[in-house]
Design a protein around this nucleic acid. Structure first.
Lengths: 204, 204
DNA sequence: CGACATTGGGTAGTGCCACTCTCTAATGTG
DNA sequence: CACATTAGAGAGTGGCACTACCCAATGTCG
């Protein structure tokens, strides 16, 4: 398969595929001459994954490259890969030392244990800070409800991880972590809409 | 309070405040002369809200303006305001007519009823499509687990809505819909990390 | 009173990002 | 052998969220 066919089958302009090749998001094809390269199904699959990460996944090119690097690194343990994926995902800006207290309290209440420098912990603290700055203060009880729901999901996510090959597991973790987020958010909004319809009838 | 104090107290450069004024994200102050305007606490509060929406909330200026317009429109019913907020939030690109079948199936299973053109429904369909394009196909059973968890949260979100004034309710809905999303995502990742630690011990 | 800083209002520029265009030389293809 | 296509790389584009600059008018402080 040449680049034009690869691009066409993924629904991406050729120029964009070249850009991804340059950026290292998609591995180079097998050179069959100075001006020809051959691409296989694995390139097509990778290209589709890249598009999913960049589009619906909401990642930047730089973050996607880092995530894919974790996918590509063989020998990574699943737990480490999950950590790598989290470290690289959005939501962890170079924010200062936020107030971790309420965030840690949530974990204590749930009995969760995570790394001290867990990116998700910083992300949580940052999100709580933003809420406070916006003049809303979530109660510990509300947070625990959220944590309970998140716990069911996270538990399930990890239980689903295939144990066959590490590479497969890592890919699974990355894809699910990133691409199920929009699903979860959409479902929450649907639940809100349904609940709102029931609580405020006649408003429709 | 003058613009410099307003900007200082919100931790935002003066030039940026001017930009927000021009973009209509923050209402103009009360003119006390040709080159003076007075701002009050409500401007400060609004400015902080804008920063929260644009930063952690992840909204663009255009979307934030639309969200704030819903907040400002008096007489909107709460249910309608929630709909307006959802319509304007990210996740609803100009995607073609995606395959709504699996998305609708989730709702059927849960007994949820939403508008036929619900943005969240389209967002869900789009997210599922992206997953399939990336070569991952979530089972109906997995989706239902997610939906169950989302249901608990959405229910709670709506139950919390203050019934005092409509304006207050709308503000609450918008802020919580947008700003609790990062909280939920962070909690999910923390749950994953905890579960992963328990399932793959020794990997740490 | 007068030097100086600040303001509202507006225009133009900046830096970043994800592409997208263009070009070249080489190479397939009908 | 005319023509299209390719790899590879540099430069350009458009959108976005600021950010810098400018102006005349105005407030303020010695």
């Amino acid at each position: 398969m040449q680049i034009s066919e690869l691009a066409h089958r993924a629904g991406v302009p050729v120029a964009t595929v070249k850009y991804y090749l340059r950026e290292g998001l998609v591995p180079a094809g097998e050179l069959t001459g100075a001006t020809r390269a051959r691409y296989g199904e694995e390139h097509l699959e990778r290209l589709r994954l890249v598009r999913a990460l960049l589009g619906p996944g909401g990642l930047s090119v730089a973050r996607a490259r880092a995530v894919l690097a974790a996918v590509d690194t063989p020998g990574t343990s699943v737990h480490a890969a999950l950590g790598a994926a989290h470290r690289v995902l959005p939501g962890v800006g170079p924010e200062g030392p936020a107030d971790l207290e309420q965030a840690r309290a949530v974990l204590r209440l749930r009995g969760w244990r995570v790394a001290d420098d867990s990116p998700a912990l910083l992300a949580l603290a940052g999100a709580l800070e933003a809420l406070r700055a916006a003049g809303v203060a979530p109660t510990d009880e509300l947070l625990d409800r959220y944590a309970e729901a998140a716990g069911r999901i996270g538990e399930r996510d990890v239980a689903e991880v295939p144990t066959g090959s590490v590479a497969e597991a890592v890919r699974f973790v990355v894809v699910n972590t990133v691409l199920l987020e929009p699903v979860l958010l959409a479902l929450r909004r649907l639940a809100q809409e349904d609940a709102s319809r029931r609580r405020f009838p006649g408003d429709c």
